[in-house]
Design a protein around this nucleic acid. Structure first.
Lengths: 369, 369
DNA sequence: TTGAAAGCGCTAACAG
DNA sequence: CTGTTAGCGCTTTCAA
């Protein structure tokens, strides 16, 4: 193995000089620098990561904690991970992959054994057991996602978060549909999106405490708020990604409220089943029913009907998280929560509400604001 | 930070003794061991990864090189990565995530800077520029996938590979269908699956050299071989995952050979579009058309029609790769290629060939062996 | 069964 | 602008 000492000897300089050309932390005369660089190239020298970590207490590694059971969000999660990795590399960092299942212990391990310089944590839930560790940690950490339902909540204190503004995203969907004249919208949400607050809309199932990451709940909150503002009636049905579940939910929606003219989906896995079902039921998209999704662009574009959608900017989230971390490792302190504004792209799946199909009596039944 | 020396002092022993209780490389009397363990717990000691790496030249890290643009195989890739990570953890290893895009340089970096003890490389292509580096490398490496079309090829020499036996998988699909009486089968394959050999079947497009990882080509080879044996006519159409592509391919298949009674799909993304299309065309599955897939179990189970499929054992592949690596790091040398035998599970999508629909004249047109 | 001590390869004062 | 030197925290011979 070629060591720094070998290079120094070969170039006829001291070890520290070699070290300094590598780090650039002190000015070296052009001739010596070139000579050293030449020796490095000739000998094929590579600094030993462990030695460097020991001496400098910098590993050049960012830990990325990824959910193991991503359920239905594999693509987003993976895309974020990839963006994190490439961005990290572009800043000279490597990425250590950890699974969320290791829990707080993983955080302590990274911290205690100095395995990484900083960490990115995905899929943080409310009352996540890792949060306390993260707050106490010396090393910087960035969460992708919010550990709370709203950005305002106190849980955010002392943490650094990056996420899509799902609340605004939900609102954007309703705005778009309201602008097209839709007044009765159904939401096919995450199974875990149900909020712990009393229902503010038609047909809301009984209150259940939210357990997931909360992004679905945030979207729902945004949908509801905008629905209130725009006088849109909202129906919420949790579905998982199976065809059967989608079919059941949609059928129920149209039975309970035949005037429904638009659907909002947040569940990627539900997209194709939904479109297939509507096709099968003879409901044309967007002539009879408009569909708006919150999903990655790629999913929206490649769907059997190109979807009007708020894109989940997975790449950007990963990139932002790394850049924050890199800046903090460089001494800056850009803390706080950064919510990415939603961007809705209108595609083929949404159109004007079909005239005449909207029932005149709004907000019958329970609920309503 | 708590160091080994701190623990030694606290326990009233020497540093080496503490080190030895940690590594278990020498027998320590019960009392001292307990005393030391107590000090470790009390002080919350964690060995410094860098120091350990420097002193022992063991990092406790496995590098995992993942394709960045996985195209349509995100779920499989991700599942493998997760299996690798959890299996690695269960053996005391952490996983460093690298992207395939870094190419051979990443291999050299890992090797040269002693960043990891070993590496797992996914998505290796034929003539992959990383192969030479991997062969020369001191550290053990395992490929997930074969860098060649058939397992026999010389390319495998000096490499350690783990993969599904796609050739047998393809054969298994044809066997299954032949057993059900199907004699005309169409394959919706990967866009890159086209082999560089002259077509042995009906309607094969002009020869093109295979560029991808080759697993699609291997499946196709197996399909063809078995088709020959069982007197099944095979039609191959590459499709990507878009609805449009699937629709075009399927329409063409039935136009060109109306007697087709079964379809084999290897492209996960094409599964739902395909089922939706068949439904739309009024072809019942499996009454009119049988569908057999090569895909992860999860996809097969959750499809709108539960699919008869050869499962891609992503978990097992990841696990096997790690276990090989761990054994090799422990001094054993279980080299060579390990192909996992395919397992076909019959579900709702395949059934007996519809009687009377099979045209009598086989293999008209060009091709044929 | 335990200790003492010599590094592992690099960084970063401190000194010129 | 460059060299000297003292560690970083751990492992592992060599001795006892």
């Amino acid at each position: 193995m070629v060591t720094l000492a070998d290079v120094a000897r070969h170039a006829g300089v001291s070890a520290s000089t070699v070290s300094y050309v590598l780090s650039g932390k002190r000015s070296i005369s052009a001739p010596t620098r070139e000579r050293i660089q030449h020796s490095i190239d000739t000998l094929g020298y590579r600094p030993h990561a462990g030695a460097r970590a020991l001496a400098s207490s910098r590993t050049g590694i960012l830990a990325l904690m990824m959910p193991l059971r991503t359920g239905l969000h594999v693509p987003v999660t993976t895309e974020i991970a990839m963006a994190v990795t490439t961005t990290a590399r572009s800043h000279g960092y490597d990425v250590l992959l950890l699974t969320g299942e290791e829990g707080p212990e993983a955080v302590r391990r990274v911290e205690g054994s100095a395995i990484a310089d900083a960490m990115i944590v995905m899929d943080v839930g409310r009352d996540d057991p890792r949060l306390p560790c993260l707050r106490e940690a010396e090393r910087p950490a960035v969460l992708i996602g919010l550990p709370t339902v709203s950005a305002e909540a106190a849980d955010t204190a002392g943490l650094d978060c990056v996420d899509l503004d799902f609340e605004a995203a939900g609102a954007r969907c309703v705005e778009h549909l309201a602008g097209l004249g839709h007044t009765r919208v159904a939401v096919l949400g995450e199974p875990s999106a149900v909020l712990g607050e009393p229902s503010a809309v038609l047909g809301e199932p009984s209150a259940v405490h939210e357990r997931g990451t909360g992004f679905a709940a945030r979207t729902l909150a945004g949908l509801r708020a905008a629905a209130g503002t725009h006088g849109v009636g909202l129906l919420h049905r949790p579905v998982d990604g199976t065809y059967a579940a989608v079919a059941a939910a949609v059928t129920r929606v149209f039975e309970e409220r035949p005037g429904t003219t638009a659907l909002v989906v947040q569940n990627e896995a539900a997209v194709e089943p939904l479109l297939a079902l509507l096709r099968h039921q003879g409901r044309a998209v967007p002539e009879d029913v408009s569909v708006v999704a919150v999903c990655p662009d790629q999913v929206a574009v490649h769907a059997s009907v190109p979807l009007t959608a708020v894109s989940v900017p997975a790449q950007e989230m990963g990139r932002l998280a790394v850049e924050r971390l890199v800046r903090r490792l460089a001494g800056e302190t850009p803390r706080g929560t950064e919510l990415i504004p939603p961007l809705l792209t209108a595609r083929a799946s949404s159109g004007p509400a079909p005239s005449g199909s909207v029932p005149t009596e709004e907000r019958r039944g329970r609920g309503g604001r």
